[in-house]
Amino acid sequence: MSKTKLYPLKININGVWKKAKVAPEESLLKVLREKLGHTEVKEGCGKGDCGACAVLLNGKPVNACLTLALQADQQKVVTVKGIGTPDRPHPLQESFVKRGAIQCGFCTAGMLVSAKNLLDENPNPSRDEIKKAISGNLCRCTGYKKIIEAIEEAAQKIRQTIYDKR
């Protein structure tokens, strides 16, 4: 295989600017996992069906497996680790743990990313809207019921926080 030219990449991940040298054929997913140490982003199907690799790109959910790393140059990426930390988890992360919305855990990173985007845009989603928002995230343990309940509970917590602040 011929050697391809590497390009400089500068990317903001969870609030921190990072640099790497990447080839055009490297996906954002590959660079996140293999060059920048963000193995919390998972790889499932690799063709945009399963959503395990979902990250927020400028606040909106995308599949990192179908994003070229260079397309994300100078952009902001948030992974599941950027949503909350073990010390200060996001209400979604708390609810996922409390409600048992995690079985094997492989879909969880992408699931949380999609749910985060939903609640950012709509803190009072209907059950149907929740299902739509996570329709691109496949859980093969098929624990959807608890996932949906966890998102509902987190939404309620977020609404309460907004209400309390007023």
Binding site: M1, T4, S27, L70
Partner: peptide, 10 residues
């Protein structure tokens, strides 16, 4: 489907 098998210019 985990890699783009052919290099290309960008």
């Amino acid at each position: 489907t985990h890699i783009l098998p052919q290099p290309f210019e960008y």
